[in-house]
Design a protein around this nucleic acid. Sequence first.
DNA 1: TCATTAAATCAACATATATTGATATTATAA
DNA 2: TTATAATATCAATATATGTTGATTTAATGA
Lengths: 107, 107
Amino acid sequence: MEVFLKSVAALNDETRVLILRFLDEYGECCVCDMQNSLNMIQSRLSRHLKILKEAGFIRVERKGTWAYYSIRSPLDKFRSESIKEITYLEIELPELKKISETRECKI
Amino acid sequence: MEVFLKSVAALNDETRVLILRFLDEYGECCVCDMQNSLNMIQSRLSRHLKILKEAGFIRVERKGTWAYYSIRSPLDKFRSESIKEITYLEIELPELKKISETRECKI
DNA sequence: TCATTAAATCAACATATATTGATATTATAA
DNA sequence: TTATAATATCAATATATGTTGATTTAATGA
């Protein structure tokens, strides 16, 4: 029950649904790129990434000061069905702005 | 997005997960029987039933003063996967107390 | 019509969660 | 080391949601 409710609670927020959709579309992405692309302030984004991570939807890999997030793989049936369902929603996805690669983050 | 979030929000509560599991196990059931079986006060149960109904998980059929709730059928993929996932949770299910049939409700 | 019963809704309150700006942590490089 | 940049966490506040007891609504039968 606890694990299920944690997954469901993580899905129960428009911001997090958008983040999942974003990562599913563009693949691994660092926080500052998401800040830029999704136009979210850092603390807000960080909070939601933590919730999604602890609910088992995403994973992090640290590379220096950067944290790269991506959809966890493999996902169990319920989580992957959830992601699939989110894909069907046809959310308007902002374009990916990869400033991290230019070494000009300074967000 | 709105419909998806409504479904997810409906799942995001231990009480409602239990109600779904209960209805899935025992089939159509009236409110007073659920009150008794699940040991919930009427207003609480009624609120959760409404949320589940509006999220598309269950349906009601009125028979006189009684309201019979059951899992809606057919369910779309996400909702039926959710119900399936809930079944796997192995929730301890209280037994069904069918007092409504004895005509001695007076709850 | 009036009383009774099942169910729905309301009002008050308590708890949980989201947002923001400020601060802390961690890694890198000068 | 010290400064800087990326990310995480904290504190304060606002909003959403759950619980309860009281009230309302709707259907039935005397």
